[in-house]
Amino acid sequence: MAPLKSLQQEYPLVDSSFQAFCASHGIFSVEDFLLYDVDVLISSADKQSTSQRLKQGINQLLYIIDALHQPLLTGLDLLEDAKRNKHSLSTGCQGYHWIDVLLGGGLRQGQLTELVGPSSSGKTQACLQFAATVAKKHLAFVVYLDTCNAFSPQCIAHFVGRSSSPVFNDQADHKPLQKVLDRIICYPVFDIFQMFDVLHQLEINLRSEMFKSDCQVRLLIVDSVSSLITPILGGGGPQGHALMISVGFLLKKLAHEHNLAVLVTNHVVGGDSGTCKPALGESWKTVPHVRILLSRECESDICTFSILKHPSMASGRAASEMHAHDLVSGLSSSP
C-alpha cells in the first residue's frame, strides 16, 4: 500500500498539512493508518484549528482503504474469469512432469501458492527453476523478491543451459540465457516496509501497462515471505499480525487483478508431538490458495512434494523420486 505523500496528487485532501498531522502520530503510510486507532486520531483532530479539514482527510483514507477490497462476485463471474484468465504455468522440472501433474498443470495464475519446507530442502532452487522456466518457456517477465541474498544467476544459467545448449561457449550461445535473465527482475528486499514499497510500485507499473503487451509479468516470487514477517510478530502485539494479513491481502489482490501466479516460500517450526508445521501461525494458514510441503529424506537426494492444501484436490497427495541433485547442481557447478 502507498505512502501518504504519493496520494496527494490524486486525493487533494491528503495534502502536506494532513500528512504533517499524521506524521505527528507516526503515520506515514496507509499501513500505518490501518494500525492506528481511528477514534483516537479523530479525537486528536478535534483539538486542531483545522479539525474539519483533518477529519475529511481521515474519511478520504478510509474511502481509499475500502476501495482496495474486491467487489462481490457471483459464481458465474468467477467461472468466466477462470476460463478467460486463470491458466497454469508449467514448473519446467525437466524429466519430472509429475510436479505439474501434482499441481493440476503447474502454478495457477490468479492464485497464491506457498512452498513450505525446512532449511536446505531446496525451496530457493525450486523458485529459481520455476523463474527460469516461466521466463524461457512462457516468454514472460518474472518479479523475484529476494529476502535472503539467495538469488543465483549461475543457477538460472544452469537451468537454461540444461534445457538448451549444454555449454555456453560463444556469444551466440549466450543469447538464450541473456533473454531469460532480462525477463527476471530481482529486488533485494530486507524488511516488510520495503516489500510494501516494491509491491505498490509493481501494482502501479501493472496498471500503467509498463510491460510490453507481448511479454507481461506472469509470475511473482517472494523467497522467503517468512523471513520478513517473523521479525514483526515478536512480542505478540497486534501490529505485526495486522501487517502480516495486509501482506497476504496485497499478494492475493495482485494475483487476482493482474492474472499473476504468486509463489512464496515459508519455513517450518516445531509443532505438537515433535512434528513440524508451517511457520506464521493459524492466521496465515488461511492466506495461500495452495500449500505444498517440500521435504528431503535424511541422507538422501530424494525430494518429496506433498499437497497440504489445494482448492480442487484432496490434501495428502504426494510425488517423490525427484533427485535433489537436479535442483541444486546448478549452484554446486557454478563458479
Rank of each mutant, 00 (worst) to 15 (best):
L4S: 02
L4R: 03
S6K: 10
S6I: 07
Q8N: 12
Q8T: 15
Q8S: 15
Q8C: 05
E10T: 06
E10R: 10
L13I: 01
V14P: 00
F18C: 02
G26Q: 05
I27Y: 00
I27E: 03
D32Y: 05
D32K: 11
Y36T: 12
D39Q: 12
L41R: 05
D46W: 15
D46F: 14
L54W: 05
Q56F: 00
N59H: 10
L61F: 09
I65S: 09
D66M: 10
L79W: 12
D81K: 12
K86Q: 13
H87D: 11
S90A: 13
Y96C: 08
H97T: 11
V101W: 10
L102N: 03
G105R: 14
G106Q: 06
Q111K: 13
L112E: 05
L112F: 09
S119T: 13
S119Y: 13
K123Q: 09
K123A: 00
A131M: 14
A131G: 09
H138L: 07
A140G: 02
Y144W: 03
C148L: 14
I156L: 08
A157M: 08
F159R: 08
S165I: 14
V167R: 13
Q171H: 14
H174Y: 14
P176C: 10
P188H: 13
V189H: 07
Q194P: 04
Q194A: 09
S213A: 11
S213E: 14
D223C: 06
S224R: 00
S226W: 01
L233V: 01
G235Y: 11
A242Y: 06
L243D: 06
S246L: 07
S246P: 00
F249T: 10
K252C: 05
L254S: 04
H256S: 15
E257I: 15
A261I: 07
V262Q: 07
V262N: 02
L263G: 00
N266F: 01
V268A: 01
V269K: 04
G270P: 08
G271V: 02
D272W: 07
K277I: 07
K277P: 04
A279T: 05
S283M: 15
K285S: 14
T286I: 14
L293C: 02
S300I: 03
I302M: 13
I302F: 05
T304F: 06
S312C: 15
M313E: 12
A314I: 12
G316Q: 07
A318P: 06
A319W: 07
A319S: 10
H323A: 13
H323E: 15
D326K: 06
G330W: 00
L331R: 14
S334N: 14
P335A: 14
